[in-house]
Design a protein around this nucleic acid. Structure first.
Length: 823
RNA sequence: GGGCGAAUGGCGGAAUUGGUAUACGCGCUAGUCUUAGGAACUAGUGGGUUUAUCCCGUGAGAGUUCGAGUCUCUCUUCGCCCACCA
């Protein structure tokens, strides 16, 4: 047999697979059990595939090929998350239209995927920038709009001055734009939102974003991150009366000028409240301006903090604030007057935008009180007072009738008291806010809304918003635009796009010129694959029922919050509206770990340490790259690249290839090898099922090493071994398969079965321990009785000398494993 | 500050229910073959020493157990994500 030549072999089989798409395409009518194996569809960047893509796509490719061999009907599609800022930014620089660059990038990606031997069903390919696709993205927007789940509101939003666009809350990280790294400022703008907060808790039969997590087979850390992001916290709202309205009567509580409302999770500490703080945006400053003695100072502080970006606010090491002189507030429990501050460490967007400060039991308040020399009053004591202050739950003191209660009980009792006196109530707060979906950029799906002044009277709440009729979809992206960012959508300057007839009255109207966040496109694409050429619906009911939900979803952990939360939200909306029968899209989720550069750092173009998969394929072959990435370590682990390590895989494949030359049709009986082979089938099968590809490969190597020692190899056994190898290294498997005289693809074969009986060894190595330490090993029959084993053990020369003169306290026997003598 | 996870040879990593620690691969050492090798093959490869019926070894310390990488407690270090969320 000639030498293993991956280049030649791989090109040949890749061509064969393209000519035989039926191998990987699925049949909707098949009675076989379905498996939907999905990759997160990539953004087709100009950079091409990187080794991280190869890692997760190889994992799903192995799973898909494995399940097909197991006789399952496998849907394994791929597509393109094609809208987005990079293509547009590139267009601004080069004047090349994003359609062109995207088309080119997709061609590159697809060619690279072909060269890696991925078995996608390309007949279902989707492209989110294709009008046939974004027509349905727009349709989803209309569904949300019609069900009052999409709304327009003026809001303080994150604005990136460099990208000249609004960002979602999740796209502004630490006050810096996720895309370009420039600072994000706050702007008041009219924006479109999706009401994702409606779905946090269960909604009728639709499980909420919180409780729905319970039933999912997802990494625990991912679920926890989602919970943290939603940020549910149970607490209490409390009204602090403003002191010149001190004498309580009911009418005063109806006027919000007479009190400030705070939110706290620690009402039990309220007897230690020594002041209150409002956020700079809090309305109280405007409402009571005439009563404020140091109005100028306060206003100056508000101005200053308004100019601060979120980043600057967070970077500030010291808390700042100003006392609002002339206004005091009253602690409803003690009836004591406390002073009021405005400080930007209090966030306007969370809770009520005002807090009660308990410096003795809250670190932030303590810090602030230290700086401004404010009183500190302790009211909780616990077993361990850590450092300077006690922030845990404990027992109350100096707290009126609540003294001696434990924190938990005190919270319940105090909240009850507040409720009865109409001074507060129990309240659940969430960090999650509605999803801001409008973008003032070109390369996205246009929002299908038209504004008609004449029709504005029809629904005053909606200010002349007329949804584009479904039959008029898609609202096409115009091509006559200049996409240099100006702070307004480039679509606004396209006359053909912007001016339009009102679908209601036929009069002059204007189109919404914003586009949608690309995360909207990716929130539903997994439905489209089930029926990607459907012209009448985003996917047919039957096809959805047939294929969804997704059985295995693999992708990067960076999408833990954004994409995964939004996709769940969309699925829940469809469930609520009765379109589908399930309310979670991805039953099982796994993340691939990041592949670091050889130097242990993250791969980065700027560092010049990026590994290009094309070069690796060129040098070693796709099978070797695939297997090497799977062999490096557990799929989800972060692991450094090591180019030298690939030769281990190359040697292994060469060995497998070479050993095909030793095949004989003759019946060979080698019990030990047969036993090892059945162990190998079992281990590989179990490891694939649980995505432990590294140990599956090591088992293949163990068996290959054993084959290598044989004079001749049984054809039947070797063929089965090839099938075990084929999901990992499909090209070499097909090649050898053909060389063995087969005319059909190896991927039409059945996955080998193992025989548990053959796995059992006839002889075992019985370990003999004395006080837990291994002292001897004896070869014995596997079914040796306890009695015989004990006898053999004490008769062993090595053991005899160790135990001579000592008394044996007891002897422990573990069947098939060991004898442990205790002296 | 919060959440999650990790720590095993020179390196990446193995180790079903507690039961032979370091599988598999890289690297390294020696040898064989070769005109040559960053090829192939063979043997070896945790540390120590008194070189063998030996001792020590899975971040540190304690505990449970006949027996702990694995279970419990305390601590240290590192990584990732989130972070002034009251």
């Amino acid at each position: 047999m000639e030498k293993y030549n991956p280049k030649e072999i791989e090109a040949k089989w890749q061509k064969y697979w393209i000519e035989h798409p039926e191998l990987f395409a699925v049949n909707d009518d098949s009675k076989k059990e379905k498996k939907y194996i999905l990759d997160m569809f990539p953004y087709p960047s100009g950079e091409g595939l990187h080794v991280g893509h190869v890692e997760s796509y190889t994992a799903t490719d192995i799973m898909s090929r494995y399940y097909r061999l197991q006789g399952k009907n496998v849907l394994h599609p791929q597509g393109w998350d094609a809208f987005g800022l990079p293509a547009e930014n590139y267009a601004i620089k080069t004047k090349i239209h994003p359609t062109e660059t995207t088309k080119k990038a997709i061609a590159t990606f697809k060619a690279q995927m072909g060269k890696l031997g991925f078995s996608y069903d390309w007949s279902r390919e989707v492209n989110s920038s294709d009008p046939e696709y974004y027509k349905w993205t727009q349709w989803f927007f209309l569904q949300l709009y019609k069900n009052k789940l999409a709304y327009k509101a003026k809001a303080k939003v994150n604005w990136c001055e460099s990208c000249q666009t609004v960002l979602a809350n999740e796209q502004s990280e630490n006050g810096v734009c996720e895309r370009c790294g420039n600072k994000v400022i706050q702007k008041d703008l009219e924006q479109w939102f999706f009401k994702i907060t409606d779905f946090i808790e269960d909604k009728g039969k639709t499980q909420g974003l919180l409780s729905g997590l319970e039933k999912l087979d997802w990494p625990e850390s991912t679920k926890q991150t989602q919970r943290n992001w939603i940020g549910r916290s149970e607490g209490t709202t409390i009204k602090f009366l403003i002191s010149n309205s001190k004498f309580l009567n009911k009418s005063q509580l109806n006027n919000d000028k007479n009190f400030i409302e705070v939110f706290t999770t620690r009402v039990d500490t309220i007897f230690g409240c020594t002041y209150c703080v409002v956020a700079p945006e809090h309305k109280i400053v405007q409402q009571l301006a005439e009563q404020i003695l140091n109005l100028k100072e306060v206003e100056k502080y508000l101005e200053k903090s308004k100019k601060k970006s979120d980043l600057m606010r967070m970077e500030a090491k010291e808390k700042t604030g100003v006392e609002i002189k002339g206004i005091k507030v009253i602690n409803p429990f003690t009836n004591e007057e406390v002073s009021l501050f405005v400080a930007d460490y209090v966030l306007a967007q969370y809770g009520t935008g005002a807090v009660m400060a308990v410096p003795a039991h809250d670190e932030r308040d303590w810090e602030f009180a230290q700086k401004y020399k404010l009183p500190i009053k302790e009211v909780i004591e616990g077993e361990k007072k850590v450092d300077k202050i006690f922030t845990a739950d404990g027992v109350l003191f100096d707290s009126g009738k609540f003294t001696k209660m434990i924190s938990e009980k005190a919270r319940a009792e105090m909240t009850k008291w507040l409720t009865e006196n109409k001074l507060g109530s129990q309240k659940i707060n969430y960090k999650l806010r509605d999803w801001l979906v409008s973008r003032q950029r070109y390369w996205g799906a246009p929002i299908p809304i038209i504004y008609c002044e004449k029709c504005a009277h029809l629904d005053p709440a909606r200010q002349g918003e007329i949804p584009v009729p479904e039959e008029d979809l898609p609202v096409m992206l115009p091509t006559d635009v200049d996409f240099n960012p100006t702070g307004e959508s480039p679509l606004k300057k396209s006359k053909s796009f912007h001016n339009v007839k009102c679908p209601k009255c036929g009069g002059e109207a204007k189109r919404e010129s914003d586009t949608m966040d690309t995360f909207v496109c990716s929130s539903w694409y997994y439905f489209r694959y089930s029926d990607s050429r459907n012209k009448k619906a985003f996917a047919g009911k039957e096809q959805i029922k047939k294929w969804l939900p997704v059985d295995l979803y693999v992708g990067g952990a960076e999408h833990t919050v954004l994409h995964l939360l939004y996709a769940r939200f969309f699925t829940k909306v469809l469930h609520k509206l009765g379109h589908i029968k399930f309310d979670e899209p991805f039953l099982k989720l796994r993340h691939q770990g990041i592949i670091l550069a050889e130097d242990g750092n993250k791969m980065a173009k700027s560092k010049g340490n990026v590994v290009n998969p094309d070069e690796v394929v060129e040098k070693f072959g796709a099978d070797s790259l695939r297997m090497f990435e799977m062999f490096m370590g557990p799929l989800e682990d972060m692991k450094p690249w090591n180019t030298k390590g690939i030769v281990g895989i190359v040697r292994f494949l060469e060995k497998v290839y070479k050993n095909a030359g030793k095949i004989t049709d003759k019946n060979i009986t080698n019990k030990k090898l047969e036993s090892l082979f059945h162990k190998t089938i079992k281990k590989i099968t179990n490891d694939i099922e649980s995505l432990r590809f590294n140990t599956a490969i090591s088992q293949m190597m163990i068996f290959a090493n054993e084959l290598d020692k044989q004079e001749s190899i049984s054809k039947i056994q070797y063929e089965k071994y090839l099938i075990l190898l084929s999901p990992f290294a499909p090209h070499i498997a097909e090649e050898i398969w053909k060389k063995l005289g087969h005319t059909k693809s190896i991927f039409l074969e059945a996955w080998p079965k193992y025989d548990e009986k053959l796995i059992q060894d006839e002889e075992i190595e019985l370990v003999i321990q004395i006080n837990g330490k291994v002292r001897d090993k004896l070869r014995v029959s596997a079914d040796i009785t306890e009695e015989d084993a004990k006898k053999l053990a004490v008769e062993s020369e090595k053991i005899k000398s160790q135990i001579s003169g000592k008394k044996i306290k007891k002897i422990i026997f573990v069947k098939g494993k060991l004898i442990s003598i205790v002296i």
